[in-house]
Simulated assay, not measured.
Amino acid sequence: MSSISSRPRVQSVSLNTVAKNAVFTSQVITSAVNFLSSQAVKAYKQVAQSLQLSTVNTIEPVASLRAEYQLQQQQITTALSPYNLSATESIQLTALLTAAPYVVESNLKIQQPLQALQLSTEPSAARQAQNLLLQAVEASHHQVFLETLKVACTNAAVQIGFTSVQTMASLVGTVRLVATDAQGRSLVTEINGDINSQPSIATEVVGVSDGSCNAILDEFDRALEAAGVRAAVPTRKFTGGVCELAAAREFVRKKVKPQSTSRVTNTNSPNDKRRIQRLNQGNTTQQQ
């Protein structure tokens, strides 16, 4: 028997679960903003505080942050207007403030576009650097979000007794996990996340024959929610014992090892023929 629990749209994950070594972009920017004029630094601090751009309670997928991007830019432009900044500094500040809600793998991931933004002296160069910074921030944030979902799914599985967790090889943008308990039952999870859409989580129970699939998935879903994963209401599907997730099929296929074939000696080989001839000659001599 087998069942799948699917969460088609993951909206956010608690910061308590965020992947280790991840860095808030706002922290990187705060240390880099000092290249601007004193008036621009003042504007950055006051606008960031008034719009609460650095106050992040959850980590959201890139697609969700993009949806907020246009409104956020309008708010930033309006908030910066009283400071009478140059066109270049306005673009630089807008780029830095817009990047604040993101989380990146390390400051090295955005170091190059950040330096380009710092060195830009014309609006066109600043605009180009702004675009490069946003692209780098989004790409790194996406990886952090997928890794955070992986951590959340791992913790949820361990919490309900599936303590042996392995990561399966997968395509870019996909994370596959297999968690197994002491009874040999397994939870196979696929996390699919294109940067342009909200990621999804699907978990399939494998190796259960007593009808407890739904009970296991109920526990897993509750543990995910406790880990701070917020998503669309999970849907449940009974598969009738036929694995549906690609990761589950691959996992089962690898578990069923092919039987070893015994090696049969070729009795027609030259060595065997000579050995038989010698034995026959010996028998003939004894008979004589």
Score class of each variant (00 low, 15 high):
S3N: 01
S6W: 02
S6L: 02
P8R: 01
V10F: 02
N21W: 09
V28Y: 11
T30Y: 15
T30R: 15
S38P: 12
Y44V: 10
Y44S: 11
Q52I: 05
V62T: 02
S64P: 01
E68K: 05
Q73D: 11
A87I: 06
I91S: 06
T94I: 12
L96A: 07
L97E: 08
L97M: 10
T98C: 12
T98V: 11
T98W: 08
I110A: 06
Q111C: 10
Q112G: 06
S120K: 07
R127Y: 10
Q128Y: 13
Q128V: 09
Q128S: 13
N131G: 09
L132T: 06
L132M: 13
L133G: 07
E138T: 08
H141A: 11
L146M: 09
L149K: 05
F162K: 02
S164K: 03
S164I: 02
L177K: 02
T180H: 04
L187R: 01
N192V: 05
N192F: 13
N196K: 14
A202R: 07
E204K: 00
D210V: 10
A226L: 15
A227E: 09
R230V: 10
A231T: 09
A231D: 10
A231R: 07
G240R: 00
V242E: 01
R263Q: 04
K273N: 10
Q277K: 13
G282A: 13
G282E: 15
G282H: 11
T285R: 10
